Amino acid sequence: MIPKLIPLPGSPWPVLPPGIHMADLSDVSAAFATNPWRRELHDGLVDACGRLRRAGCPTVYLDGSFISGKPKPGDFDACWDPNGVDPAKLDGVFLRFENGRAAQKAAFKGEFFPSSMLCSDVGATFVEFFQQDRFTGKQKGIIAISLTADPLLSGKVQP
């Protein structure tokens, strides 16, 4: 379940309360795919999650203005758990970080990083970094999506 967004003093829009909140893609759609642009972003997320699931990825962590109260987010940010991922089945676009992750944005309208990868700007893994508000440095929440159990993917993706 996705909790209600909360104000964070110093941040321009409401965010999720601190913590990692489990949700499925349908929950994400209901909470955040609330207009045509946000639905496009969600469609890209679903496509990417399907590709990651086929490679054996168990979990995606969702962050960015897409899961905030920002009226028109530019994209979404996500990181994926590399445990169990078969490199031979992983779409190479998930490992392309050049040009501001242009290939990922073109494919999915969002950005993806391995969750255990170190974000050199802050000295933390991406799953840790995503839990900090970029405007205030204070803790905020992110969403974890179990790809192996997601009902939306179960109907669309072959194991």
Results as ranks from 00 to 15, higher is better:
Val28Pro: 09
Val28Thr: 07
Ser29Glu: 15
Ser29Ala: 13
Ser29Arg: 15
Ser29Ile: 01
Ala30Thr: 11
Ala30Glu: 15
Ala31Lys: 14
Ala31His: 14
Phe32Trp: 06
Ala33Phe: 03
Ala33Glu: 02
Thr34Glu: 13
Thr34Pro: 06
Asn35Val: 03
Asn35Thr: 01
Pro36Ile: 00
Pro36Val: 01
Trp37Tyr: 12
Trp37Val: 00
Glu40Thr: 10
Glu40Leu: 13
His42Leu: 15
His42Pro: 02
His42Met: 04
Asp43Gln: 13
Gly44Leu: 07
Gly44Cys: 06
Leu45Gln: 03
Leu45Met: 15
Val46Arg: 05
Asp47Cys: 01
Asp47Ser: 08
Ala48Cys: 13
Ala48His: 11
Ala48Arg: 11
Ala48Asp: 12
Cys49Tyr: 08
Gly50Glu: 09
Gly50Asn: 09
Arg51Val: 01
Arg51His: 10
Leu52Ser: 08
Arg53Ile: 05
Arg53Cys: 01
Arg54Lys: 15
Arg54Thr: 13
Arg54His: 06
Arg54Ala: 14
Gly56Gln: 12
Cys57Leu: 12
Cys57Glu: 08
Cys57Tyr: 13
Pro58Met: 03
Pro58Ala: 15
Pro58Thr: 07
Thr59Asn: 10
Thr59Phe: 15
Thr59Trp: 12
Val60Thr: 06
Tyr61Trp: 13
Tyr61Asn: 03
Leu62Met: 09
Gly64Trp: 12
Gly64Leu: 07
Ser65Tyr: 06
Ser65Val: 06
Ser65Met: 10
Ser65Arg: 08
Phe66Asp: 02
Ile67Met: 07
Ile67Trp: 02
Ser68Arg: 11
Ser68Phe: 04
Ser68His: 07
Ser68Gly: 04
Gly69Leu: 12
Lys70Glu: 09
Pro71His: 08
Pro71Met: 02
Pro71Phe: 06
Gly74Pro: 08
Gly74Glu: 12
Gly74Tyr: 02
Gly74Ala: 10
Asp75Cys: 07
Asp75Thr: 12
Asp75Met: 10
Asp75Leu: 09
Phe76Ser: 00
Asp77Thr: 04
Asp77Ser: 04
Ala78His: 03
Ala78Asp: 01
Cys79Ile: 10
Trp80Cys: 05
Trp80Ser: 02
Trp80Ala: 04
Asp81Tyr: 06
Pro82Val: 11
Pro82Glu: 14
Pro82Gly: 09
Asn83His: 13
Asn83Asp: 14
Val85Met: 05
Asp86Met: 10
Asp86Thr: 04
Asp86Trp: 11
Asp86Gln: 07
Asp86Cys: 11
Pro87Thr: 06
Pro87Trp: 12
Ala88Tyr: 11
Lys89Asn: 08
Lys89Cys: 06
Lys89Ile: 04
Leu90Ser: 05
Asp91Phe: 09
Gly92Val: 04
Val93Ile: 14
Val93Phe: 08
Phe94Trp: 08
Phe94Gln: 02
Phe94Gly: 01
Leu95Arg: 14
Leu95Cys: 14
Arg96His: 11
Phe97Gly: 00
Phe97Glu: 06
Phe97Cys: 00
Phe97Gln: 02
Phe97Val: 03
Glu98Tyr: 10
Glu98Thr: 11
Asn99Asp: 14
Asn99Met: 05
Gly100Thr: 04
Gly100Pro: 03
Gly100Val: 00
Arg101Asn: 14
Ala103Gly: 01
Ala103Lys: 07
Ala103Tyr: 06
Ala103Cys: 03
Lys105Trp: 00
Lys105Met: 11
Ala106Thr: 09
Ala106Tyr: 05
Ala106His: 04
Ala106Gln: 14
Ala107Trp: 05
Ala107Lys: 03
Ala107Cys: 07
Phe108His: 00
Phe108Glu: 00
